[in-house]
Amino acid sequence: MVRFEDLRIFVSAADHGSFSAAARELDLTPAVASAALKRLELTLETRLFVRSTRSLRLTADGERYLEYARSAIATLDAGRNALARDKTAISGTLSISVPSDLGRNVLLPWLDEFQRRHPRVGFQVRISDRLADLFRQPVDIAVRYGTPADSSLVALPLSESNRRVVCASPAYLARHGTPQTPVDLRRHNCLSFVLGESLHDRWTFERDGVSQTVPVKGDRVSDDGELVRRWALAGCGVAYKSRYDVLEDLRAGRLVQLFGDHQGEPSPLYLLCVHRMLLSPAVKRLRACLQERFAAFEVG
C-alpha cells in the first residue's frame, strides 16, 4: 500500500533534486525523508532515484511514476478540499418556524433575499405564533419573541432592543378620541392576543423606572398576531404589538403610536434551537443576516 506522505516526499525530492530540501519543505528530518523513499521503492519494486553523494536524479521508472504521483496527490488534495468546503458550505434545507405577523410581513422577504444570495439553501417555513415543540416537531430553528421559558433550548439573540407599542389607526382615533395615558385604555376597545390558554389582557408600561400594568378589554380576541394587526389597521380598536410587527405601518402613517413617554414591555427576538450541534453554517449565516437586517430595520 502506497502511503500518501511517501508520495509527497517523492514529488518534493524530485522537484528539489535533494532529500534534504524535500525534508525541509515538509518539516521532516532527512532520515525520515530517506526512509520514506526507500519504503516507496520497496512497495513499487523499482528504483526511483539514482543517488550519489552530490546529486539525486530520477531513473526512467521514476520519471514515468512522477506524473502519476502528481496526479494522485492532486486528486487526494481536491477530495480533501471538497470535504472541507462541504463542512462550511451554505447549503441544505432549513425548517424554520416564524411568528405570524413578523413572518409574513418582514421575515419572508428577507428569507427570499437570503435564498437568492445562497441558492443552495432551501426553506420549509411554518407560520405560527405558538412556540413550536422543537423536540417533537420537524423544526430546525424557530424565531420567537421573548426569552424562552424552556431553559434547555439554545436561544441566540437577533434583536434585544425591541419593545411592544400601543397603536391605533387615525380613523379609530378620529371616532373615539386619543387616549392620553395608559389608564385611558380602560375606555377604549382593546384588541387582545391569546397565546395558548393565556389571554394577553394586561398591558404593562414603564416610565421613569416605574412599571404600570393596565387591565384592558375589548370585543375582539385572536391567537393570530397578523389578524390583530389587520383589525387595528381597519380601525376596529387599539392594539399592543411588537414594534417590529407595526414599524412599517407607523412610518407610513397607517397606525399611530400612543404614549410616546411610556415604554411598552420588552419583546426581544431570539433564534431558538434544541442543541448547538444544529447551528450549521447555513443557520449561522442566516442568523448573522437577520441581525444585520433588524439593525437596519430599526433605523429605517
Score class of each variant (00 low, 15 high):
117 R>H: 12
263 Q>I: 00
76 L>P: 02
261 D>T: 01
29 T>W: 05
115 Q>V: 06
39 R>N: 14
168 A>G: 08
96 I>H: 09
180 Q>W: 01
292 E>R: 02
225 G>A: 11
87 K>W: 08
128 S>T: 14
212 Q>Y: 14
265 E>S: 13
174 A>V: 08
199 L>S: 03
64 R>E: 15
290 L>Q: 00
83 L>T: 13
110 W>E: 06
48 L>Q: 12
177 G>C: 05
189 N>I: 11
196 G>P: 09
250 L>H: 07
188 H>G: 08
197 E>Q: 15
146 G>I: 05
149 A>P: 07
45 E>N: 10
135 F>A: 12
267 S>K: 05
141 I>R: 08
183 V>M: 00
31 A>N: 13
177 G>H: 06
54 R>V: 07
53 T>Q: 14
32 V>G: 01
200 H>P: 01
127 I>S: 14
57 R>S: 12
216 V>E: 10
207 R>W: 01
98 V>K: 04
34 S>C: 02
125 V>L: 10
84 A>S: 11
23 A>G: 00
12 S>A: 15
27 D>A: 14
130 R>S: 07
175 R>T: 09
172 Y>A: 11
120 R>H: 14
48 L>D: 13
40 L>T: 14
239 A>Y: 02
6 D>P: 02
125 V>A: 04
102 L>Q: 10
194 V>W: 03
2 V>S: 03
168 A>F: 05
297 F>A: 00
101 D>P: 00
85 R>C: 01
130 R>V: 08
299 V>F: 00
296 A>H: 05
168 A>D: 11
44 L>S: 06
265 E>Q: 12
266 P>Q: 07
109 P>A: 00
161 S>Q: 08
18 S>K: 02
175 R>K: 11
266 P>D: 07
77 D>S: 06
37 L>V: 15
164 R>C: 02
57 R>K: 12
89 A>R: 12
255 L>R: 07
125 V>M: 05
206 E>V: 10
287 R>W: 00
226 E>T: 01
113 E>K: 01
55 S>C: 13
185 L>C: 03
62 G>V: 00
25 E>T: 09
